[in-house]
Design a protein around this nucleic acid. Structure first.
Ligand SMILES: [Mn+2]
Ligand SMILES: [Mn+2]
Ligand SMILES: [Mn+2]
Ligand SMILES: [Mn+2]
Lengths: 218, 218
DNA sequence: ACAAATTTTTAGATTTGTCTAAAATATAAT
DNA sequence: ATTATATTTTAGACAAATCTAAAAATTTGT
């Protein structure tokens, strides 16, 4: 498979939310930052190769083989992201572009050894699950911190309230996007939470919790 | 620069032994496993871009810019080779193909961080020197172990006598291609050598030393 | 239901990198 | 110095991936 074919397969996978749903030509074009006519050409090729199901004007979906291929790519992408953050001290938000290139390196041994080197991580730096070699993985969901059960673990991936006062509050309490968060306890009384963030225990009000998104797997 | 352009530049660099000597179309074609006509086409493009000096029928040589580009690629290639051997436990002889792909990943930060992660290595697993970010490096020479001064360090890269008896001898004494060797002492009396190989001290006769090639830098 | 708007596909062109076959040039042999 | 051989370049073609412009099919709105 060429680099381009691989990126199309990944795009179709992500647009279909990993569920082999039908995806439109225009949606793919937008995702790939290309023209719909180019997408049609590529879809035909992928169809020939048995990676997608395609009927003219009726959208496209991944075959089982296509899904397997996509999962292998997602696995590689996310393992490289972990490598960049854990081993090379890249930050959360600068790994994607590089992983987008590294994912295309062809060597099964490389991926296996990388996985081992990283200690078989389950999630990438964005909290997204890493498929196993066999293509199995837990799904990730994004929830408000206030709606998550005690014991939950995840990555802080967004804010609901993005006004300066709230962002400043987060800064002052050194809570940042990309941080791993664990919910230690919840006060029934006021809905406030005890968290563990980067080793430290902190306490936040329900109002804060209701404005932070957590990505959790399982 | 495209992947293909990069591989051509590297090929010209290696064929010219890093000395900006003139290289023939056929030599490049052989190295790249392609046809001379394809090489001519590519040379024209590289010439347009100021990477090579080219006059019809008169061969091609790297410009200063081309040499700088080649050194950057060689640096990346060799750093990835070190990574594969040191961090992912690849063996000496299986890293080249993968590094051939990894070298094309575009991210200056990635290379810098990789270099740091590896502890700023000076040579790759084949004993070849790794150019600095500025493109400086020591040259590597291949010499018989018997002709090397006391104190020399290098990588065992070949045998002069490749008959089964000699290879069996090496096996029995656990000397293998790719091993780092240091010459500790030489007996004036019989020319025999004291070596350090993979932490262990061993003693070999001049006859053995005269059949082992060492790659040493500087 | 039918016209209008949108989406998707086709037709034809372009760029990159490659190829084969033939022509041009350079090198070697007599 | 000619001829023969080898090397290099050109001419023309092709596959991959893209684009624009136009046609076809689908969806939407009334
Ligand atoms: Mn990619
Ligand atoms: Mn990610
Ligand atoms: Mn390469
Ligand atoms: Mn090497």
């Amino acid at each position: 498979m060429t680099l381009s074919e691989e990126d199309y397969i990944k795009a179709i996978y992500h647009l279909g939310k990993g569920e082999r749903t039908s995806v439109s030509t225009n949606a793919i074009a937008e995702q790939m930052e290309t023209k719909p006519s180019s997408v049609t050409d590529m879809i035909k090729k992928l169809s020939e190769k048995g990676l997608v199901n395609y009927k003219k004007y009726k959208g496209v979906s991944l075959t089982e083989f296509g899904t397997k291929t996509a999962l292998t790519l997602v696995r590689k992408h996310r393992l490289w992201e972990v490598f960049l953050v854990e081993k090379l001290d890249f930050s959360w938000d600068e790994v994607h572009e590089v992983a987008e290139q590294l994912e295309h390196v062809k060597s099964e041994k490389l991926v296996d050894r990388l996985d081992k080197h990283l200690g078989y991580p389950q999630v990438d730096p964005h909290g997204d699950p890493i498929p196993s070699k066999e293509g199995e993985f837990k799904k990730a969901v994004k929830k408000l911190l206030s709606e998550v059960p005690i014991g939950a673990e995840g990555i802080c991936v967004g804010v609901k309230d993005s006004t300066p006062p709230f962002l400043k509050f987060l800064d002052k309490n050194s809570i940042a996007l990309g941080d791993a968060i664990q919910v230690l306890d919840k006060e029934e009384f006021d809905g406030s939470l005890h968290l563990k963030i980067k080793g430290k225990d902190i306490h936040i009000s329900e109002q804060i919790a209701a404005n932070l998104y957590l990505k959790i797997t399982e």
